[in-house]
């Protein structure tokens, strides 16, 4: 297996605070890596650096051999990186179907003729004329939306034409993941996909993510529900205060004294607890 993503000494400072201390991270093709850590550990900041929503002050980020640190997020997305957001960012006034279709944006071909300098104009013309090739492409994507929605059982399929703001919180999280999948990502970044979900919904999400993993999807996950992390991850990185404090197989990381200290406190708990 080759390295799909490689971060070297990635650093991000906000004023005097170092949100991400020089951190290394590698992710191989097909691997499932989780990042855990208490609130404020710098996990989401690290995600933002990888997806281009923030620019590191130092260090390199390489995706499939290409240095991407500082690149615009839309260019990184076009390279095959999809992500979800911590608090869920669906397009509230759009239907579930349109939300998912937006995810497939960078795969549009027929409607975006390659004309140097006039690409935007040609795209406008194609949208208005809608020649058969464009119509066929839309139809194919619409068909794909049905397939992606079907991954979530009957949660999304009956609601494809409802506006996203009318969905339950859990369904909005599902829409976000469906949208990310429509990008056919080489690398999928999931930021707390089960936040705000109850136990049943969490279990359901776990099996969906497990299904993605079984298909060979490379996944980088931030998650607080450690049981889920333990079951799915090939490898776990624990962060605290902007730094990596442990890395390795899930159960090793969970038992690591540094991790227990990060979660429970700097003084040791009573012996019975340990």
């Amino acid at each position: 297996m080759t390295d799909l993503l490689e971060c070297r000494a990635v650093t991000r400072r906000f004023g005097g605070v170092i949100a991400v201390k020089p951190i290394d991270l590698t992710l191989r093709e097909g691997e499932f890596l989780s990042i855990i850590g208490p609130n404020g550990a710098g996990k989401t900041t690290l995600f933002n650096l990888i997806s281009g929503h923030d620019v590191p002050d130092d260090g390199t980020i390489v995706l499939e051999g290409v240095a991407i640190a500082g690149r615009a997020p839309e260019r990184i997305a076009a390279m095959g990186l999809a992500r979800t957001f911590q608090h869920g960012r669906v397009f509230a006034n759009m239907s579930v179907r349109d939300n998912i279709l937006v995810g497939a944006h960078h795969r549009l071909r027929a409607v975006k003729p390659r004309l140097p300098g006039l690409g935007a104009l040609a795209e406008l013309a194609m949208a208005l004329i809608r020649p058969p090739a464009v119509a066929a492409e839309e139809a194919a994507l619409n068909h794909e939306v049905l397939e992606i929605a079907a991954l979530f059982g009957d949660r999304l399929t009956p609601r494809l034409d409802q506006p996203a703001h009318s969905l339950s919180y859990a369904n909005r999280r599902r829409v976000e993941i469906a949208r990310a999948l429509a990008l056919r990502p080489r690398l999928l970044l999931l930021d707390e996909p089960t936040a705000g979900m109850n136990e049943t919904e969490t279990a359901e999400m776990q099996s969906i993510i497990g299904g993605l993993k079984a298909r060979g999807q490379t996944i980088l996950l931030i998650e607080h529900k450690l049981d889920l992390v333990m079951r799915l991850s090939d490898r776990v990185i624990a962060m605290d205060d902007g730094a990596k404090i442990a890395e390795g197989p899930p159960h090793t990381v969970r038992q690591s004294p540094a991790v227990i200290e990060a979660y429970l406190g700097h003084r040791a708990m009573g012996e019975a607890a340990l």
């Binding site: 929503h53 957001f85 669906v90 397009f91 759009m94 349109d98 960078h106």
Partner: peptide
Amino acid sequence: HLGRIFRAIRDDDVAARAHG
């Protein structure tokens, strides 16, 4: 598809960029 993209930019330009 342009109507879809315009609305996506309006609703959340950060998420829109994240999808290319």
